[in-house]
Amino acid sequence: MARAPQLPHPSAHTVGVVGALVGLAAAGTAAGVALTRIARRRLDVGGLRPADLAAVPDAELRANDPLGAEARRADRTAVVRADDGVLLNVEEVGPPDAPLTVVFVHGYTLSMGSWAFQRRTLGAQLATANGHRPAARLVFYDQRGHGGSGRGPSEHSTIEQLACDLAAVLEARVPRGPIVLVGHSMGGMTVMGLAAERPELFGTRVVGAALLSTSSGNLADLTFGLPEFLTRVRAAVLPIAAWTMRRRPAIAEGTRRAAADLISVVTRSLSFASPDVDPALVHYVDAMIAGTPVDVIAEFYPALAGLDETGALEPLRRVPTLVLTGDADRMIPKEHSELIVERLPDAEFVVVPEAGHMVLLEKPDVVDEALTGLLRRVAAAQPAVR
């Protein structure tokens, strides 16, 4: 990916104006851009107590041990080296010899923690098949620059590189056996990127896929539910905001500190749709994305805005595919999923009522049921996993 154009160094007045707008402008670019390190500070100083996250299955335990001692004994951690040397953080649930492996790929500025409900529920449901043989192994990893994974050079902040990272995880952690890929938002784009880079894997090693709250392109045209005036403001300010985030991250971080409460409101608005969503889930998303540096956010944004993976969908016709979205997703509206389904006419299409972009946290029971159905269909078609 080419670097962003070198803008002139902004004057103090310009920086001040950008400081007032960068949080809003950035928040309008993608789900993860509505983030804040304030969430981390709240966790650190006790403003957000572990008990506040009780609605999230493993969040309370993550305050001390990412999964808790009991779960930790059954899980494994690993590090995978990408082709450019970046180290990717991987965690696995279930035995290595399970007949099917499900690999989860998270979204922009999130982490593998976004799959908390699926990790708990599917991990329990798939622990055994017919009470005897393990049904599946679950593999989670943090995308580069996110969570516990390392950062690469800015020019590698592309969907193509993320697809290569996913291929590296598959080669290192799933060298044999059938695979189902599950991607949310940028994770779904990563799956499509893998289909473009390695189409021969689909129908051979990759035997199923789920694309949640994602898009195959035209993201630069999104309005995020903003009025036309604010959309124009966002378009005008974004180049300066991106420059600030990449070249003056301390200024952007200072803005987020000053606008902490506003950014939390934006996070809720862009991530969830249910009127009674638990505040703990909003705090959990805040805390999860707080670890993503603002310059990483800025580096990845051009790759998302310029995305065009329409041609990458063809390999997915070879495998059972689930396309799922919330009906009130303001980040990537359901029309983007409808376009994917038009090109994948045999895909199962699930639209979740009263759900936003973080449908996997907001409506986990519906998501878990849909994923379980997909895995059952895949298992029925794979004699080795009966």
Rank of each mutant, 00 (worst) to 15 (best):
V341N: 03
T321Q: 04
T310N: 10
L324C: 04
P333M: 08
A312V: 13
S337F: 06
V351P: 08
S337T: 09
A355G: 11
G311C: 06
E354P: 05
A312L: 05
E309K: 02
V319Y: 07
E314D: 15
M331L: 12
D329N: 00
S337D: 06
A312C: 08
L316K: 06
P353F: 02
M331C: 11
E335L: 14
V323P: 07
R330T: 09
K334L: 13
P320L: 03
A328V: 07
L339P: 08
L344Q: 05
F349T: 11
T310E: 10
P345F: 09
A355H: 08
E338F: 10
V323M: 00
L307A: 09
L316N: 03
T325Y: 07
R317L: 11
A347I: 06
P320W: 10
T325L: 07
L316P: 07
T321H: 00
H336Y: 12
A328C: 09
A355I: 11
R318S: 03
V351Y: 12
L307N: 09
D327M: 01
R317N: 01
T310C: 07
R330W: 09
F349Y: 15
L307R: 05
E309G: 13
A355E: 12
H336F: 11
A355Y: 03
I332S: 03
M331G: 13
P353V: 11
D346W: 01
P345A: 01
L307G: 06
R317Q: 14
L322S: 01
V323D: 06
D329W: 05
L322H: 03
V341F: 09
R343H: 13
A355Q: 08
L339F: 12
D329F: 02
K334P: 12
G326P: 01
R343P: 03
K334E: 15
E338Y: 13
V350N: 10
F349S: 10
D346C: 04
T310A: 15
R317W: 08
G311F: 07
T325P: 12
A328M: 11
I340G: 11
V350K: 00
R317A: 04
P353N: 10
V352K: 11
I340S: 01
V323W: 02
A355S: 13
E348P: 11
V319N: 00
L344K: 08
L316Q: 12
V351G: 08
P315H: 04
L313P: 12
L324F: 12
E348L: 10
L344R: 02
P353Q: 05
P320R: 00
E338Q: 15
V323A: 02
A328S: 15
G311R: 08
R330H: 11
L316F: 02
E338H: 13
E342N: 09
G306N: 15
E338L: 12
G311H: 11
F349E: 08
A355C: 05
R343L: 09
R317I: 02
P333G: 08
S337Y: 03
P315L: 10
